[in-house]
Design a protein around this nucleic acid. Sequence first.
DNA 1: GTTTCACATCAAGAAAACTTGATGCGTGTG
DNA 2: CACACGCATCAAGTTTTCTTGATGTGAAAC
Lengths: 109, 109
Amino acid sequence: MLAVTVGTPLLQAEQACSLFKALADPIRLQVVEVLSSGERCVCDLGADLGLAQSRLSFHLKVLKQAGLLQDRQQGRWTYYSLRPLALQQLSGWILQRIEHAAKPAAPCG
Amino acid sequence: MLAVTVGTPLLQAEQACSLFKALADPIRLQVVEVLSSGERCVCDLGADLGLAQSRLSFHLKVLKQAGLLQDRQQGRWTYYSLRPLALQQLSGWILQRIEHAAKPAAPCG
DNA sequence: GTTTCACATCAAGAAAACTTGATGCGTGTG
DNA sequence: CACACGCATCAAGTTTTCTTGATGTGAAAC
């Protein structure tokens, strides 16, 4: 068996599910895409994505609660960035599903 | 820049979103876990997971429409299995987000 | 050809997630 | 201190997704 990831703790299905739920929204995916080029403050995110403030705040909260984002407060501004470990773990969970997926079923009847 | 996946076509955000939505449900994640050990017929899946037939059928449809599952009909039975490519592509999309994620923001004000 | 079996599909209701506008709260600014 | 700014939170309404039970369909069994 080939280890897919190195030194990354493995995810339970339940944790994976939380991460998938957090990513299962087009707006949150845009947020992740923007943040994938580096940290941003909320006001920049709102401007970039053209979102009402409360709407963006809602989605940031979902992503943060899932563990996908971290935030840092500096003066009046809050900066969000990705948590690479969470992404890495989720990717690991997915890749693990592939290994024996090709095994054909025993005929049922 | 280090290429994370080799020879796998890249996913658009919209396609990634469909995949995430399909995986954003505990039952569907169980289905994926069971199928990760190989192909199964629907009746076995239903028995393994203890799900009403129509409920299982609904979730299989969601997963299949997203491109995560393929099915094969043989006699009276239908066999489902994972589509490794879809999983691989999704994993690739995730890993791509990590690369520059650590870059700090320019101070906002 | 009728019955049975494995599964898909449908319609109606229930539950969960999302949006919107209003309000609250902490932190700087004058 | 009063005010403005950046952001979080809340409540209400809307939309989406999920569940349930009933019905439909095609393939084998009789």
